[in-house]
Amino acid sequence: MAFVLKKEELPHFSKHIISKEYGLFAPVRKEARSIFKRIDENQVGEVSLDYIRTIMPPLKSLLIPPKETLLKIKDGKIEEMLPGPENKTAILGVHPCDVNAMNLLERVYMDRPKDPYFEARRKNLIIIALNCSSADEKCFCTSFGTGPSLEEGFDLILTDLGDRFLVEVGSRKGSELIGDFYMPKASSTDLMEKDETIRRVKGMIRRHVNTAGLQRIMTGALYNPIWNELADRCTGCGACNMVCPTCFCFNVIDEPELDSGSVLRSRTWDGCLLWEYAEVALGGNFRKDLSARIRQFVNHKMNYWLNQYGALGCVGCGRCIEQCPAKIDITSIVARLRGELL
């Protein structure tokens, strides 16, 4: 099923979602950029779907919050802090690369073993995706088939057709969300315009990773001097780990809570670029050199994921390239290792 939503109707549609008792997350302007935030009824006018890339990956931030309390321990009793079914969440305007990144996170968190915290949040989540209507020189989703359009993994999906959005239904949950909100049915012209938009955006994407036989090439390059060379430039800051929508590692910490006399066990995002990450008891460290840590980051995405989870671990969102203070570019690393770039 497909419908048409006039752009001036978007605030009403947002209100409709909130009225169905969903906590709504959507992109709003913050200075020159967009940032996903929780929107209440009075802020629906701020929702702005005209963006290419947010700094943080919205679905990762929702499903695995940067800091999440898992257990509360008091007087020998352990309480699991699982989000309840009342915490229904809707996310509006999330691009295909980010939805595909979440599909990858599901392979990590929903299988062998299931993570009950991730699962509870995922079950509570409804996804209103947004096909891309623009791209910049850091986008390379077409290399992984993760954008600029999306065929599955959403409940509803919008496409910007200038003065209106095409709204397509991807699941029963999505159809139920529309419910009694009236939208005219889409015509074949609307659908053709969508295809035209996607074609146009594909043409805008100039950056590529050649994935053919990539695993063999990456494994063959484990001792390539490029890793030492990159380690001279890399600051080791871990920003790439934070902004990557598929980086899923966390650390677990215990903190005493002063007022209640209990101890909180939380998990916080961690990153393989950090010294502490591969450190073990008595100070041993499996990745003492920064070069080994950069090699791990790049190889995990472009090589190890395939054996681990059956897909490459990059969706081509361009965030690590955009946010690196040292301007290190994962696509040019791969190109150099393939001999496609000097």
Binding site: I35, A239, W269, D270, Q323
Partner: peptide, 16 residues
Amino acid sequence: PGITVCMECKMNGNEC
């Protein structure tokens, strides 16, 4: 903590 200020800055969604 063994993480950088940069990482926390990203978690806060700040422009660099």
